[in-house]
């Protein structure tokens, strides 16, 4: 339950991002604020402060003020409020993680059911596609797809998706993980097909559609539900990794991955820029993983032995 609480807390905090930006912090998370000044302890302070050490060249963004009304976690290189960006970034990361997990599970369910139920040529084709994608290291596949699609967008027939759209990372991440869900589902369908109640349905002349939706799907659904939170966690981590490589969410949009990348250059002076989004990721992904384990225990009591380890 604590895990569910953590997830809900993170989600609601991120959903409140615009409210926080407009009404509490009074900042714009997406435009740079190089000459901005804030009022701190009764004094006006520049958001970007001139370096005093070394040659005195360049600027260092202001550090955490720990006041919610004013640059709670400090500013980044562009003078933007890191905490506000963190909330907005969480929105992108959660949105991409959830939608791509849902798409991935849906596609995997359709393919897994088709392959397991119909067998024959359909099974052979789907299984070979799964095998090939499975053998391709996930990140390398995602990098190849992203670098091509993110520079030019996706144009297949009537479908046009712009280069900066969030849909691209969503589709790419969903596609890459399909075999990881589809293969186990196919296995489950194969074994279900041999069971008496399915044989009975076939024997009594039920249509394929009826058997798939009424007999097999209800028995596969718990597995899909168990997969879902785990896939959201996986997809969030993949999104962040791609964004960190600058081939995920494109500027000026933010995600936890892009903020970690922003923080890479500021690591020794303003470590919170990199640490905070990572903490958000670890917290959310960890809670989702605990949640997935809990779902598994609830749906499959026999697996409790594994869950308690």
């Amino acid at each position: 339950m604590a895990a569910l609480g953590v997830v809900l807390l993170v989600v609601s905090a991120c959903l409140l991002a615009p409210f926080y930006a407009h009404d509490i912090a009074h900042v714009d998370a997406f435009s740079s604020n190089l000459n901005g000044q804030i009022r701190l302890n009764g004094k006006w302070v520049s958001v970007l402060q001139a370096n005093t050490q070394g040659l005195g060249l360049g600027v260092t963004p202001i550090g955490p003020t720990w006041h919610f009304s004013n640059y709670f976690l400090g500013a980044d290189n562009q003078g933007r409020d890191v905490f506000t960006r963190l909330l907005y970034g969480g929105r992108a990361t959660l949105l991409i993680g959830t939608t791509s997990a849902v798409i991935c599970c849906l596609v995997a369910a359709v393919l897994g059911l088709a392959a397991g139920y119909f067998g024959g040529v359909i099974d052979w084709i789907i299984s070979r596609v799964f095998d090939i994608v499975w053998a391709f290291p996930i990140y390398l596949l995602a990098i190849s797809l992203s670098v091509i699609l993110l520079t030019s967008g996706l144009n297949v027939g009537p479908i046009h998706i712009g280069a900066g759209s969030l849909l691209l990372p969503i589709i790419i991440i969903a596609a890459v993980f399909v075999p990881y869900v589809g293969r186990p589902l196919r296995g489950i369908v194969l074994s279900l097909k041999e069971r008496e109640f399915v044989q009975a349905a076939i024997g009594s002349g039920a249509s394929d559609w009826h058997i798939i939706t009424r007999e097999i799907l209800p028995n596969v659904a718990p597995t899909i539900i168990v997969f879902l939170p785990l896939m959201v966690a996986f997809d969030m981590l993949t999104e962040s990794a791609l964004s960190f490589l600058s081939i995920g969410v494109q500027p000026p949009s933010a995600s936890w991955g892009t903020i970690i990348q922003d923080g890479l250059g500021l690591l020794y002076t303003r470590p919170w820029v990199a640490i905070a989004p990572g903490l958000g990721l670890v917290l959310t992904a960890g809670a989702l993983n605990v949640l997935g384990d809990g779902f598994r225990d609830a749906f499959d009591p026999k697996a409790k032995l594994r869950g308690s380890i």
Partner: peptide
């Protein structure tokens, strides 16, 4: 062990690297 196992699938390696770098280098 349970906790470490969960943490292992939830922590991005590159972020952990940054944190380690921050502590050891700065």
């Amino acid at each position: 062990i349970m906790f470490v196992g969960i943490a292992a699938v939830s922590v991005p390696a590159y972020w952990l690297g940054e944190v380690v770098n921050y502590f050891t280098q700065s």
